[in-house]
C-alpha cells in the first residue's frame, strides 16, 4: 500500500517539476541572469558594439554619484512621487467610494473611467501633448479666466506638473478598482451593525470603517504607486524627453540615454539602475514599517 502511494506521489512531483520547468527556464534566462549580469556589467567599462570590455571596479558608481544630472533626476523623481502618489491614492479612494453603488449608471460610468488604464502610455501621452499644446484644450478652458495661452510642455515651470497631471489622471482608475475590490470584501453585516450604532454620516463611515479596514489596500496602492512613479519613463520620453532645460529629467531617462545613446556608458547605466533598485527597496521597506506601526 505504501509502495503504491509512493509511486503516486513520485508521479505527482515529477509532473509538478515538468509543469514549472518552462517558467523557471524563462525566469532564469530573462530575469535572474540579467539581474546578476547587470551587477557584473556595472563593474566594467562595457561596450558590446566595439568589443571593448575592461574592469573598472566601482568607478561607474562613483561617476553616477558625482553626476549632478543623476542627482537632479533623483530629486525630480522624489518630488514627482510625493505629489503623484499622495494625490492619486486619495483620488482613487474617493472614486471608489463614489462608484461603489449598485446603480446601473455606476456600472456604465465606471467602465468609461477605467479607459486610461488600458490605453497605451504612448497614445495617451500623444493625446496629452495636444491637450497641453498652444491650440489645446487646456488653453480653451483657461481662456475665460484671462490666462494667456501657451504651450505648457515648453515651460520649465509647468512641464513637470503637466506630466504629473496626466499620470494622476491615468493611474487613479486602476487603483480605484483595487479599492472597489477592497470595499466589496467588507461584509455587509459590519456596515449594518455600524448603521444601527449610529455611524451614518459618510465621513464617520470613512473615518471609522472604510479607511481602517482598507489599510492593507492602501499600503498596496501606495507601494505600487511609488514603484511605478520612480520608474517613470514612457510619458516623459514621449512628451518632453527630459526637457525643457532638464525640468522633467528623471532617473529612467538618465539610464536609458546612457545605454542607448552612448554605448561606452552602458556600465554607468547599469550602475545607475542598481542605485535606483536600492532606492526603491529602501522606500518600500520604510513604507511597510511605517504603515505597520500606524494603527487606527
Amino acid at each position: 500500500m505504501a509502495g503504491v502511494r509512493d509511486a503516486g506521489s513520485r508521479l505527482e512531483s515529477r509532473t509538478a517539476y515538468l509543469l514549472i520547468a518552462p517558467l523557471f527556464i524563462l525566469l532564469g534566462s530573462f530575469v535572474f541572469f540579467p539581474a546578476a549580469f547587470s551587477f557584473y556589467v556595472s563593474l566594467f567599462h562595457y561596450d558590446p558594439f566595439n568589443h571593448s570590455i575592461y574592469y573598472v571596479g566601482f568607478n561607474n558608481y562613483l561617476s553616477v554619484f558625482d553626476s549632478p544630472l543623476f542627482r537632479l533626476a533623483v530629486i525630480n523623481a522624489l518630488i514627482y512621487t510625493t505629489v503623484v502618489v499622495s494625490t492619486q491614492t486619495f483620488l482613487a479612494f474617493g472614486l471608489a467610494l463614489l462608484f461603489n453603488r449598485r446603480f446601473l449608471i455606476s456600472k456604465v460610468t465606471r467602465a468609461f473611467v477605467f479607459l486610461p488604464a488600458i490605453t497605451s502610455s504612448v497614445a495617451l501621452s500623444i493625446i496629452f501633448i495636444w491637450f497641453f499644446s498652444k491650440q489645446g484644450l487646456l488653453n480653451y478652458i483657461l481662456a475665460p479666466l484671462g490666462i494667456a495661452s501657451q504651450n505648457w510642455l515648453f515651460s520649465t515651470t509647468y512641464a513637470f506638473p503637466s506630466i504629473m497631471m496626466l499620470n494622476i489622471f491615468s493611474t487613479s482608475p486602476y487603483f480605484m478598482i483595487m479599492y472597489l475590490a477592497g470595499l466589496q470584501s467588507i461584509p455587509s453585516p459590519i456596515m449594518e451593525a455600524a448603521a444601527i450604532d449610529g455611524v451614518i454620516s459618510p465621513w464617520s463611515k470613512f473615518r471609522y470603517f472604510y479607511f481602517p479596514m482598507l489599510t492593507f489596500t492602501t499600503l498596496f496602492v501606495v507601494i505600487l504607486g511609488i514603484i511605478g512613479s520612480i520608474q517613470l519613463f514612457d510619458q516623459v520620453f514621449v512628451m518632453t524627453d527630459g526637457g525643457p532645460a532638464y525640468a522633467t529629467y528623471v532617473p529612467m531617462i538618465y539610464i536609458f540615454n546612457r545605454a542607448y545613446l552612448y554605448p561606452g556608458l552602458i556600465g554607468v547605466s547599469a550602475a545607475a539602475s542598481f542605485l535606483l533598485f536600492v532606492i526603491i527597496m529602501v522606500i518600500t521597506i520604510a513604507q511597510r514599517n511605517f504603515l505597520k506601526e500606524m494603527k487606527w
Binding site: 539581474a35 549580469f37 547587470s38 557584473y40 558594439f49 545605454a259 539602475s273 527597496m281
Partner: peptide, 26 residues
C-alpha cells in the same frame, strides 16, 4: 520556489533592462 517566483516582483524592470539589452547585443 513559489517565494522565488514572487520575489521577481520585487526586482524593478530597469535593473533587468540594461543587462538584457547588452545580452541581446552579445
Amino acid at each position: 520556489l513559489f517565494y522565488v517566483v514572487l520575489g521577481t516582483l520585487m526586482i524593478p524592470f530597469p535593473v533587468i533592462l540594461i543587462a538584457s539589452y547588452v545580452f541581446m547585443v552579445d
